[in-house]
Design a protein around this nucleic acid. Structure first.
Lengths: 190, 190, 190, 190
DNA sequence: AATGAATGAGCGTTCATTCAT
DNA sequence: GATGAATGAACGCTCATTCAT
């Protein structure tokens, strides 16, 4: 019971934090603003988090973990097929579409964020890259360098997600996804 | 003469700004720090720029313009050959390697920057994408969507440049460039 | 019974308050800390006291009253002899040694304490001074001003008690007491 | 010139600090208040002092140093006579009368003040006590313990100064001084 | 033109107090 | 009665900007 209430309030604060941080950026975000967005008093935030910085970190970590976890599930349920890359693109587009706040913040972790968090994100990102590199090894030509290919794949996705997330221009994500997969699979040469 | 002196001082401030902003991030950078790095008094900056925000904008704009300008030259001097993409990758790597300060800031324009600057950067980026899309139309298969391909290309470059710029891990850029070009040209499939 | 329980809890809070206030000073003491030291919930304190300030006042008052009461007893049981001053010194040293928390706070009532409490302490102090002045009148030379002599006596005691209470340097209180009494009785001149 | 201006402003801040700290106590004093009392902006204080704590320390130190310095002069110019104790009492009364702000603070250094400052004050106080003990050795009976006598002397002075400083009751300091000297010299016994 | 001392708006955080359970 | 989660007023300090020199 009690536990449920506390979990709920914690989630409300995290959600408000994601919204405000993503709209204002870390430095310009005010704890006041996050508190009133979450519908709690300013002091309440400090019952759940040590301070602004830890609040930011927790939010990023939970968001990124949710993405990674679901991405891994997605990969596992996909059959043994190169189409897994298409699935990944689709999933990424959908996840980021549904979690724009977190997406914005993950794509551009403030350069000034403490070294620990930056490093944490870096490690997480490389876990994803390793995952992708393994898939490239499995389905790709032996001519391609798996790590470079994985990096490139992630870069492509991020570039298009960013376009969608930051600029509020709606693309037909399905069509884009298909086209991007084609390019990644076959290259641009005739 | 006088003009020359002023230009010099302006450049000194811009250079100092790039260094400090890139090291500290926009919000944590202090005008004091930029002034002493530039070797001028704090008040002097306000003789050349309206304030912190405009200083940041001018710096970004000049940096990005320099990149775009030289990129266009590079494209024009490159022969009529698909190898132009390889040249672009090489050029990007080199430019970013030599202008890491600007590179960092361009890659992660603070989310908080005013809408005008974000929009300005967006327009500039799309000029580059159009340029790239034209090249795709010229040398690529008719099966690929030129805009998506251009986006993907830029994403790949940025992803690898970011790795190099932020993490101080030195890659052998030449080798990476070659591998990336192969993937972009032929895709990952066997 | 109920009454007994309440009294006990009240005493526990007062004791905890004396300990914390004396260790941290009035302003730096936190009600949280006092509550947990007393082994009660934070809200419980407010069932027994109006707030932080009143808690402090009650504690001081009870401590001071205990001192004055016992001091008066001590004086009454002492025979009709100038040695009563020696007894007073001994008693003060012993009392303060056993109630260091209260001693610290009485010696240095925070300047910020509300005027009422300061005035209350002042009145109590002057009751003691009157008591002492009467003794001076009784046993001292007619040349000395009883009030000034009483003030001086108290000052001497406080000065030495403070040294002992604040600095944790253990003096041989008996020896000191003897020496101080000699000086007060005979003066420093040969 | 410039130096003069800066020194003046520094002094103005120190004076305002003494006034506010002595009226409100350390913790309740607000930097805002000190600034406006000094007639400067809040930020200006931070150009001259590192923060609230250092401001308090500097003020105490300069005040105490001024007292000690002048006290030593007073002792030296006093002839070789037991009357030096009378001079010390007079001087102390006068100094504290003219520097009530500092006097209040010296008498009751907040218990919570950082250990360094408390220790610094303690050392200074013991320098004075040594000075007094030497005088007792010089002019007093061989029967008295010089250190205890010095402590007692200081205690007497402080007790009466405190009465005067805190309670704004004006005594005829000259008369008190004479009476106190008599007691200290001859004791209270007939 | 160049400077840097002065300024004060702005914000993260603490903690005494309240009140629903 | 007893509790402790929630609250928000309060304050020290920072730093972009101004302006007298």
């Amino acid at each position: 019971m009690m536990e449920g209430r506390k979990k709920e309030k914690r989630m409300a604060i995290l959600k408000a934090a994601a919204s405000v941080f993503s709209r204002e950026g870390y430095e310009k975000s005010r704890m006041d603003d996050i508190a009133s967005t979450a519908g709690v008093g300013k002091g309440t935030i400090y019952q759940y988090f040590n301070g602004k910085e830890q609040l930011f970190q927790e939010m990023i970590k939970e968001g990124f973990d949710a993405f990674t976890e679901k991405l891994e599930q997605e990969i596992q349920v996909s059959g043994n097929d190169v189409k897994v890359f298409k699935k990944i693109i689709d999933f990424s587009f959908q996840f980021m579409e549904m979690n724009k706040d977190i997406a914005k913040l993950i794509i551009r972790i403030p350069v000034t964020m403490d070294y620990q968090t930056v490093e944490w994100v870096h490690i997480k990102k490389h876990q994803i890259i390793k995952l992708l590199a393994d898939l490239v090894r499995q389905y790709g030509s032996s001519e391609v360098d798996p790590l470079v290919a994985a990096h490139g794949f992630l870069g492509m996705i991020v570039s298009l997600v960013a376009e969608n997330v930051f600029l509020q221009k709606k693309y037909e994500l399905d069509a884009i996804s298909e086209k991007m997969f084609y390019i990644y699979a076959n290259g641009i040469l005739p």
